[in-house]
Design a protein around this nucleic acid. Structure first.
Length: 628
RNA sequence: GCUCUUGUAGCUCAGGGGUAGAGCACUUCCUUGGUAAGGAAGAGGUCACGGGUUCAAAUCCCGUCAAGAGCUCCA
């Protein structure tokens, strides 16, 4: 009992602290707006809230703010702070506020010829019954619910961070504003700490490490968002796939292989085409068909129509693996005794993501899902979901990824984008909820996060920049069995419709490895390391001894190399450290004589000399147990 | 897709209307060295691509492609 009380008090304290910080950041947003107003009086401000790591203010301004302006803005902000203006709350009537806005007096330091257009719009969004408050600091008046710190002098540690663009109210049909980001902390020490953290985060960015460690490459000539796995990256991926394959075996899955394309009819039946055509690579049509259509003077628009209507046959790069797996299921008759059928594949899919959204390995156009589809009876759904969750937990647990959240995605009651019978949705949502509650981890239910064909459970992790990525996923699907007319023969000798479950514990290999690189900061556990051991002979004289150790380890399946360059050990160690190789084995006269190696671990440093066999047994065990 | 920023050697980056720069990596030679950089020499670039302005463009302007940040979208 005292335990929970202790906890509650602490979390309340934490929350209060947070809101103090948010208040400070919000005040900084006003100070920044004040500064921008003084520099560019024609600035029109929209919204300026605190956010996770700071604050921003959206501004419409003729002048394009660039990083070169940050210093100027900060200098002006410092002046405002030095003036130690009081943040004063003024309650006004709607008409008074409107009057000021029309004179351009809101989010401004003086009256202007142009009205404060965004503030007028925002005023309209405030419900009738709510009171309208303005905040003023010095000459700067702004429409604002507050709260604020007492004085501008309370904001001592801030920094203008970046500028980007944002649509007003997040709607692409609205004008684009310049969003100026800043961060602020209670004091300079905390600000410094945060900046150092950002710098460290940059160091472990998977795009940077991917290059340094030679893991993957994205080439302009190959195409945006199409990942080339280099030999080192391929090792990591292969090890992960072996790992998951072992568990597939244990959990009664069958692995299959399917091609990367399928006929449009397949996706017409599944409903992926043309409904999701915008996020697919365009269809492929046969050359002969294209030629004869061209002869007839067919336009591109007409061709698209014909493809969509099915008048012309074509192929699609597969956006999902499920239709292929369904066809495998359908190629046999199934008795209820066969169920559940679990078909797994590391299946590569292609999706036309918008170019501005692509990045590194986490958002790409071609990716390989560790996909599987389970065909089961309605009664088996819950157990199967629990089995899937179990697998996700094993995966994340083995890799030491504890920092994730579980999201149960339910349908948005107000939306019509979902297919299928509401009663079945209810049953599926209930099954997921029940399964999630057995996880032993907290989860949030989020309406509107369901897939269009069914509810799902997602495992979401954050990358170093703090962006959330969905990795593992378990989704119930009542829709596809219906569309493809799937059946099995029940104990009653009548035909029944199976339920389908889609699941992918990693999500995609690309995204997962991207997140994994950042999680480990490039220091993969030994079982995943592209190079597990590097042998460093002290000089040329000991190369033969090194080669012997190399053979011994290689025979055990250890990924090992010998550094035969004409360098001193110091230099060899440095390179091995930079490559994040877990073990360095140093061999000189001493070791050669005693048939030993001196171990240096990338994190633990000098580990002293042990016999070759002892080291061999130790590393083989470490790799086999997949220890962290 | 939209806005802004960026694109110079394999990598990290400097420079900038008048013959292309550094460090690391690479090659060769010297050195045979005990826990994060031994020394010397050499090689390597149509300055992303296409146009324009100019006596002259890597540099200025326009366009395209790509990357980054953010917004929007996401099966």
């Amino acid at each position: 009992m005292p335990d929970t009380q202790e906890k509650e008090r602490k979390s309340l304290e934490e929350r209060n602290q947070m809101s103090d910080l948010e208040r400070l950041r919000h005040s900084c947003a006003h100070i920044m707006a004040t500064a921008i107003c003084r520099i560019w009086p024609d600035a029109q401000f929209a919204a300026g809230p605190p956010v996770e790591n700071g604050f921003y203010y959206d501004v419409d301004l003729e002048h394009r703010i660039t990083p070169d302006d940050f210093e100027k803005i900060e200098a002006e902000m410092k002046k405002v702070v030095k003036e130690n203006q009081v943040f004063e709350k003024v309650i006004v009537s709607r008409d008074e506020a409107l009057e000021m806005a029309k004179k351009g007096r809101l989010a401004a330091v003086a009256e202007r010829d142009v009205p404060s257009q965004f503030k007028i719009d925002l005023l309209g969004d405030i419900p009738e019954e709510e009171e309208i408050s303005l905040y003023k600091n010095g000459d700067f008046w702004d429409l604002c619910a507050g709260p604020h710190v007492p004085r501008t002098g309370n904001c001592k540690a801030f920094k203008v961070m970046s500028v980007a663009s944002a649509f007003y109210k997040g709607d692409a049909s609205n004008p684009q504003l310049q969003r100026v980001y800043g961060t602020a902390f209670k004091n300079k020490t905390l600000l410094e700490e945060h900046l150092v953290q950002l710098e460290e985060a940059k160091q472990r960015d998977h795009r940077k490490l991917g290059k340094e460690l030679d893991l993957f490459h994205i080439d302009e000539m190959v195409g945006q968002g199409l990942v080339l796995w280099k030999p080192n990256g391929a090792v990591v991926r292969q090890e992960l796939q072996n790992f998951i394959s072992e568990h597939l075996e244990r959990q009664g899955y069958s692995q299959v292989f399917t091609p990367h394309i399928g006929k449009l009819d397949l996706y017409r039946t599944s409903g992926h085409f043309p409904y999701y055509a915008d996020s697919q690579f365009p269809p492929l049509a046969e050359r002969d068909t294209l030629e004869s259509l061209a002869d007839e003077g067919c336009t591109c628009g007409e061709l698209m129509n014909k493809l969509e209507e099915g008048d012309v046959q074509g192929f699609l790069l597969k956006p999902m693996n499920c239709p292929h797996h369904i066809k495998i299921f359908q190629s046999n008759h199934h008795s209820y005794r066969d169920l559940p059928v679990r078909l797994a594949e590391f299946g590569t899919v292609y999706r036309w993501e918008q170019s501005g959204e692509l990045g590194g390995m986490t958002r790409v156009r071609g990716f390989t899902q560790d996909d599987a589809h389970l065909f089961c009876t309605e009664e088996q759904v819950k157990d199967e979901i629990m089995g899937c969750l179990e697998l996700v937990k094993i995966v994340l647990g083995t890799l030491g990824m504890e920092d994730y959240r579980v999201r149960v995605g339910l349908r948005d009651p107000d939306s019509s984008k979902y297919v299928g019978d509401p009663e079945k949705w209810d049953r599926a949502e209930e099954a997921l909820r029940e399964a999630a509650s057995t996880l032993g981890t907290d989860f949030t239910e989020e309406p509107g996060e369901a897939a269009f064909y069914g509810p799902k459970i997602d495992f979401v992790v954050k990358d170093v920049i703090g962006r959330e990525w969905q990795l593992g996923t378990v989704q119930v699907d009542y829709n596809l069995p219906e569309r493809f007319g799937l059946e099995y023969v029940g104990a009653d000798n009548a035909s029944h419709r199976p339920v389908m479950i889609h699941r992918a514990p990693f999500g995609s290999m690309e995204r997962f490895v991207g997140v994994l690189i950042e999680h480990f900061a490039g220091k993969f556990p030994t079982w995943l390391s592209p190079e597990q051991v590097r042998i460093l002979p002290i000089s040329e004289k000991f190369v033969d001894a090194a080669d012997k150790v190399y053979e011994t380890l290689r025979n055990e399946g250890i990924r090992v190399t010998v550094d035969k360059t004409n360098e001193k050990v110091g230099a060899k160690i440095r390179l091995a450290q930079l490559a994040r190789i877990p073990y360095m084995l140093i061999i000189g006269a001493k070791e050669q004589e005693s048939n030993q190696v001196s171990i240096r671990h990338r994190d633990r440093g000098d580990g002293g000399a042990v016999s070759v066999d002892e080291f061999k047994d130790q590393i083989v065990d470490e790799v086999r147990s997949r220890s962290l």
